[in-house]
Write a protein that binds this DNA or RNA. Sequence first.
DNA 1: TTATTACTGCAACGCTATTGCAATATTGAA
DNA 2: TTCAATATTGCAATAGCGTTGCAGTAATAA
Lengths: 129, 129
Amino acid sequence: MEKQRRNTKTKKLVMDVFRHEAGALCHADIVQRLEGKIDRVTVYRILQGFFDEGIIHRISAENGKTYYALCHECSAGHHADNHAHFYCMGCKTVSCLEATGQLPQLPQGYSASESSWFISGYCPNCRAV
Amino acid sequence: MEKQRRNTKTKKLVMDVFRHEAGALCHADIVQRLEGKIDRVTVYRILQGFFDEGIIHRISAENGKTYYALCHECSAGHHADNHAHFYCMGCKTVSCLEATGQLPQLPQGYSASESSWFISGYCPNCRAV
DNA sequence: TTATTACTGCAACGCTATTGCAATATTGAA
DNA sequence: TTCAATATTGCAATAGCGTTGCAGTAATAA
């Protein structure tokens, strides 16, 4: 059966970090913003929990790190984050783009259950420099 | 100035592995197929070298691992691997798709230098099971 | 054949993420 | 409010992927 979930102080702290942040965050970002308040392992577990609940979605960046961002159209068990993600090589941040592209035509016989776009480049701020 | 490159036995071994394989391979795959013949660090360095030469391209998978596959339209220093990559959740293999989709429209002010698609699902073989 | 230096293997290290376990805190029910 | 059940936390240890330093080896050009 489903495991019950509890509303704890640490979860609220992590959620607050997400709410005060526009872009996506990686584990280290969150630990840093909560300096000393939560153990790093707990952060990993909370992120996993939020992901399972459909509250945040996961983004695998080219640098090997995993980023997380609040979901808008996801529900528990089903992540509909088919939008594109952008990595700015200037400020080294990951953000979610509203625009969705068009999936490549899959060859005969293939079935897709999830897809993701990842674009690297410069955001308006960093491009200007 | 450019560093000279040498044609060694180990490089040939790694290249042979790629040539006998249809899909993309991760570091561990290659080490396993060359069981005991090459040190794991050497494999990392050869992969890096091939990448720099434009012989193979890099794919960051959702599982956090990096995959490599032979290039077709790349040249040293410039990787044109704008095609989509497919991860089969059945046989757990990564492959390159010929088809190219359409990139999402970037918001005003953004500039893209690289992009990648990643699609998860089932390949024809695994779908049938 | 010989000198140059790219390459290899080994050991050690760094970083991201996971697991086990005892102590703690949340929750629903008495 | 009190209490028991159990989800959650923190700490220590561990696993996995990738990198760096260095001494010995081997490919290449002269």
